[in-house]
C-alpha cells in the first residue's frame, strides 16, 4: 500500500530525512517512533503530498506522490500534528466543508457526516460551535475530518499528543476501530508505550535515519536476542530463582526487581513451559509466569544508543 524508496528531504544544509525506505501492506498499522525533530513530521508531510522530496520516491496505492499528488490525496487522510479549527463554524458544517472539499456530492454528505460523527462519538456535538470543543474532542473531530472521504490510508501525526489519559484511550480505541475497518495506518508518536499494543509494524527514526523498521515482535526479539519472559515469586525465593536461571543454557540473562524476575529466553516457542515446570519442581512458588509485555521503550533505548555514541 505504501512503498517508500530512499526518500530524502533537505532544508538547506539540514538533512531532515535521509535515505528512508519502507514498505507497508494493506491493513498494516505502522508506528513511527522517534524523538522530537527526528523527521517524523517531514516524512508524513512528504507522503501527504505537502512537501517535495529532495530525492527518492514514494508510492501510495501504486500512485507516485510527486507525479500524481491529486490522485494520492483522494486516497489518503492526513491529520497534522498541530492543527486549528475555523472560527464561527459548527461541527457538522466543518465536516460538511471538508466533505465538499473532497468533492463528495451534496446528497451523500449528510449521511457521511452523521456516520463519521458516530464513529468518533461526537454525535451529540453536531450543532456545537467548533471552538467550544475540548482538546480531546477537537482531536477526534480532526480524525473525523480525515475520514469523510473514506481514505484507504491514514497518515496520523501525533494524534494523541497533549491529551489527558482518558482522551488518549479514546483515540486509541478509535484507531483500533479503524484497524478493524481494514485501513492502512501510519501513526507517529514520540511516546513509545502509546503505540506498543496498537501497531503490527514499527519504525524508529532518529536524526532522519530510519534505524529500525519491521514487525514489532521480530524487532523486539532481534534486539533482545530472544524472547522476554517475566515471572513473579515471593521475595524470599527470588535469589534462588536467579540461581536456577543462571544454570540454564537457554536463559541469556535475568534480573530481579521488586519480586519480579525478567529474563531473556533463547529457547523455542514451547520451551518456556519446560522452564516453568523445572522451576516448580525445584520448589519455587511461582505466582505468575508469562511473556513480558512488549516494552518498546527498552528497544528504543537499545537501538538509538548505538547511533548516538
Amino acid at each position: 500500500m505504501i512503498e517508500v524508496e530512499h526518500l530524502r528531504k533537505e532544508y538547506g544544509n539540514l538533512v531532515a530525512v535521509r535515505n528512508l525506505s519502507l514498505t507497508l501492506d494493506e491493513g498494516d498499522i505502522f508506528g513511527f517512533i522517534g524523538p522530537n525533530g527526528a523527521g517524523k513530521t517531514t516524512t508524513l508531510k512528504m507522503l501527504a503530498t505537502l512537501l517535495l522530496p529532495t530525492a527518492g520516491r514514494a508510492r501510495i496505492g501504486g500512485l507516485d506522490i510527486t507525479r500524481e499528488p491529486e490522485k494520492v490525496r483522494a486516497i489518503i487522510g492526513y491529520m497534522p500534528d498541530s492543527f486549528g479549527v475555523y472560527d464561527d463554524i459548527k461541527v457538522w458544517e466543518y465536516l460538511d466543508f471538508f466533505a465538499a472539499a473532497y468533492k463528495i456530492p451534496h446528497h451523500r454528505r449528510q449521511r457521511i457526516v452523521d456516520d463519521v460523527l458516530e464513529l468518533t462519538d461526537l454525535t451529540g456535538k453536531k450543532d456545537v460551535y467548533v471552538e467550544s470543543l475540548s482538546r480531546g474532542m477537537r482531536q477526534r473531530l480532526c480524525l473525523a475530518k480525515t475520514l469523510v472521504h473514506d481514505p484507504k490510508v491514514l497518515l496520523l501525526d501525533e494524534p494523541a499528543s497533549g491529551l489527558d489519559p482518558r482522551a488518549r484511550v479514546e483515540i486509541k480505541e478509535l484507531l483500533r476501530e479503524l484497524k478493524r475497518m481494514g485501513k492502512t495506518i501510519m501513526v507517529s508518536s514520540h511516546i513509545l508505550p502509546e503505540l506498543a499494543d496498537l501497531c503490527n509494524k514499527i519504525g524508529i527514526i532518529e536524526q532522519g535515519d530510519l534505524i529500525v523498521s519491521g514487525d514489532v515482535q521480530a524487532i523486539v526479539a532481534q534486539v533482545r536476542g530472544g524472547r522476554a519472559l517475566q515471572l513473579r515469586a515471593p521475595e524470599a525465593e527470588v535469589p534462588r530463582v536467579l540461581e536456577l536461571l543462571a544454570e540454564r543454557s537457554d536463559v541469556a540473562g535475568a534480573e530481579a526487581a521488586a519480586g519480579e524476575v525478567r529474563l531473556q529466553f533463547t529457547g523455542t516457542e514451547t520451551e518456556p513451559a519446560d522452564l516453568l515446570r523445572d522451576l516448580v519442581l525445584a520448589g519455587v512458588r511461582v505466582q505468575a509466569f508469562g511473556e513480558q509485555e512488549t516494552d518498546l521503550e527498552d528497544v528504543f533505548m537499545k537501538v538509538t544508543r548505538g547511533i548516538v555514541s
Partner: peptide, 9 residues
C-alpha cells in the same frame, strides 16, 4: 488549517 485544506481534492 492550510495543510488540511491542501490535502483535500
Amino acid at each position: 488549517t492550510l495543510d488540511m485544506l491542501a490535502t483535500t481534492r
